[in-house]
């Protein structure tokens, strides 16, 4: 994870049309921990939600062959069950619940060493890429984390 750059996923371990699994290691040090919280560094819950959203996004990019860009639109029943300390190794999963017209619904889940960390229902809008730069950046990012089937530019 590079928290300051919103790079929440380190490596994709499994990717199919309906499920994606990935690894993410929380950095030992980050300016984020200076504020959250002094003397008690823990990963902010909103960044756990972001990690589940990114796993869902990569799942949808993979499923759709990078034809459209997923944007987070809704978070339902997010449950933050455990604190996450610096250095933690996280398993991030996203599962497709439904693909509709212009949107998709997923379930996100994060665990660490078999212990449940958090889960949530997510809705993402599926829109045309607003710029070629973003499309290229998403392909590069996906290739960096080992997502299979990234199309050539």
């Amino acid at each position: 994870m590079r928290l300051e750059y919103f790079q929440m996923i380190d490596h994709v371990t499994e990717a199919g049309p309906e499920r994606l699994a990935a690894e993410a290691r929380v950095p030992e040090a980050s300016p984020v921990f200076e504020g959250h919280f002094p003397g008690h560094p823990i990963l902010p819950g909103v960044l756990l939600v972001e990690a589940m959203a990114q796993a869902s996004g990569y799942l949808l990019l993979h499923r759709l062959g990078f034809a459209r860009m997923p944007f987070l639109a809704q978070v339902r029943e997010a449950k933050l069950r455990s604190f996450v300390a610096p250095g933690a190794a996280l398993s991030v999963e996203a599962a497709l619940v439904h693909e509709g017209s212009g949107y998709a619904v997923t379930e996100g889940r994060i665990s660490a060493g078999g212990r449940r960390i958090c889960d949530a229902g997510l809705t993402l809008r599926l829109l045309d890429f607003p710029s070629p730069e973003l499309a290229a950046a998403m392909r590069a990012q996906a290739a960096r984390i080992g997502l299979p089937g990234v199309p050539a530019p």
Binding site: Q74, S101, G102, R125
Partner: peptide
Amino acid sequence: FLDIVFAIDKAFGIKVPVEA
């Protein structure tokens, strides 16, 4: 409306072609 379409999709077992 997105929520409503999702609920309709589920309830009727269809995919409402909202984009089209």
